[in-house]
């Protein structure tokens, strides 16, 4: 847990919407470790979970320190492709065990002329 923690009441406009995107998450733990208010905690698989949304002060530290862009704070978080987001009510499971209706690697609609995935250098 972060040593930045300060036990103060959260601001009046809490809770903030925190959106997780486990398909991109590599479970590094930066978001949990550097949250100044302990809003997040790890689930049994090491993925972040929103434990105390009411404590969030919208500092965006988790979002900026996430190397994989797998977490967003605020109502104006990007709208991902339908079904690509992991639904919160589904129980946690390691990557691969989750079901996605679309490729989890895609945010934007795929170009029509695209034939196969290119990892290009």
């Amino acid at each position: 847990m972060s040593e930045n923690a300060v036990d103060q009441p959260p601001p009046a406009d809490s809770p903030k919407k925190i959106t997780l995107y486990p398909a991109w998450c590599k479970r590094c733990g930066n978001c949990v470790a550097f949250c100044p208010r302990q809003v997040l905690k790890n689930d049994e698989w090491g993925y972040p979970q929103v434990a105390h949304p009411e404590k969030c002060i919208s500092c965006h530290m988790c979002e900026m320190l996430c190397p994989d862009f797998a977490i967003s704070v605020g109502e104006d978080a990007p709208v991902r492709k339908e079904g690509a987001w992991f639904k919160e009510e589904t129980p946690s499971a390691p990557r691969g065990a989750r079901e996605f209706s679309h490729s989890p690697e895609r945010l934007a609609p795929e170009p029509a002329d695209r034939e196969e995935e290119d990892d290009g250098a």
Binding site: K26, C66, E105, R106
Partner: peptide
């Protein structure tokens, strides 16, 4: 978005930041 995500760097690598 035509590149493969998550990216190639190790979990927690500072390059993503």
């Amino acid at each position: 978005h035509d590149k493969k995500f998550p990216h190639v760097w190790c979990p927690g690598c500072g390059l993503g930041i």
